[in-house]
Write a protein that binds this DNA or RNA. Structure first.
Lengths: 238, 238
DNA sequence: CGGCAGTTTGATGTTACTCAATTTAAGTGG
DNA sequence: CCACTTAAATTGAGTAACATCAAACTGCCG
């Protein structure tokens, strides 16, 4: 990981008086600030759960790595709402309301910043820039939720998968992670299935088809977008 | 319509210094306040479009009747995001960002309050109660969006329809509109289909099945929930 | 060289879609 | 109030998309 990729560039807490503190990340080469007692820096390994359906005392920001946010039904079905990348606030709603019965699990090694919720909400009122950031994240998410509802309600299997891959590709490109239309890709078929409402078997077939058509290739834990134009045509639902 | 059902009880603008003005509704028997120039009171008839995919200068609150919020794809597919009932802010996001390329259409005769967006956003800063209301609506909506994503991603046709009917029934019951487990219901099969991602024909079959099982009955522009417990069991996805 | 988890492939089953025809309900004008 | 018109709901038959089950294959790690 190079400094230029250091996630603080994406962090919603940046420039809100909260952020300098994120630079206490162990591997960071950037200048340190003093860490306040109400912030913690934590690391998790692949498969670890950061949250498990219980309300949390903390607000989390993902600093590095991949995670996903999901909910499980009593009969085992799992819906993945979104994938979290560097700089993502886990749930802007958790800032306002404590509840939110969702789980978050790490897809790679990840590092997160955990802020005491009480401290953040207390500072929310007299820190307009912070509350603006939270609100902005809410808005961004709401836009994503509506696009997801659109694609789950109206899209074919192919459109759903293309939409997901397109979205991830765009997000990673904003973070300067993509080189030669290819990037490390930690999702298994099961994750794509649970995010798109399909079965992993069917996802495999569709991805195979997309590969044969030279649109995307998913192998060796990497995703390569061979034909971005075509992927966009399929996945953007306009 | 009795005074006790008058929508201001649900209006997010109530007690924010914006709301008294909603009482200028022509049919209201409640005391009037002076209407500021940046508020308008409008009426629409069945099928009229209040918004049509274009950014609007106004922020809308539904005062009376039913409407729905949707987006149409270029090939004709339509996804209905939600149904609007008395007191609903059309789109909390429109308050923060002007854009939002969605359409809103009336299902019944409706009356709406239209506020100049510029005036509202200007007052947003020094009116904490108002911004709190907007934020709260954002939060409520975000919770709904996630439940919708859950049901569209994981639910069967029956679960999707039950979820929708259950949600509407709850919202109307909060508004004291339900008498004897029955209420006026302006949705056609096509609306339910476009909200659940099914075809109207299939919706018809499923509803017919629910009727035979004495769970709900949808006829004569009314919905009757015969077995609320069973509807809840099917539609709550836990 | 196993052993394991994840992926791919094939065969078959189920759910939901499409198309067409019929029935019901809701208006409309006489 | 009743024929007539029209839109919407229902029903049936056939089809396509996706799910399920089972088996074979691949890559990876000890």
């Amino acid at each position: 990981m190079t400094n230029s990729q250091w996630p603080c560039a994406m962090c919603p807490m940046r420039e809100t008086g909260f952020c300098g503190t994120l630079l206490t990340a162990p591997t960071s080469k950037l200048p340190l600030k003093e860490k306040p007692p109400w912030q913690e820096f934590r690391q998790f390994r692949v498969g670890d759960k950061v949250l498990d359906g219980e309300p949390s005392r903390h607000i989390y920001v993902l600093c590095h790595g991949w995670a996903f946010r999901y909910k499980r039904l009593s009969d085992g079905r799992r819906q993945i709402f979104n994938f979290l990348l560097s700089g993502d606030l886990f749930s802007p709603l958790a800032v306002i309301r404590g509840e939110m019965r969702v789980s978050v699990q790490a897809l790679t090694e990840i590092s997160v910043s955990a802020f005491e919720r009480a401290e953040v909400t207390e500072r929310l009122a007299d820190h307009p820039l912070l509350s603006r950031k939270v609100l902005e994240t809410c808005v961004t998410n709401a836009g994503l939720w509506e696009r997801v509802i659109m694609v789950l309600g109206q899209g074919s299997a192919e459109e759903r998968i293309a939409f997901l891959l397109l979205h991830l590709t765009r997000e990673l490109s904003r973070r300067n992670i993509i080189r030669d239309h290819s990037y490390p890709f930690p999702l298994r078929l099961q994750h794509i299935a649970d995010a798109t409402g399909l079965t992993p078997i069917h996802v495999s077939r569709i991805i195979g088809r997309l590969r044969k058509r030279n649109i995307v290739d998913m192998s060796g834990a990497r995703l390569t977008v061979t034909d971005p134009t075509e992927l966009e045509r399929i996945g953007s639902l306009n």
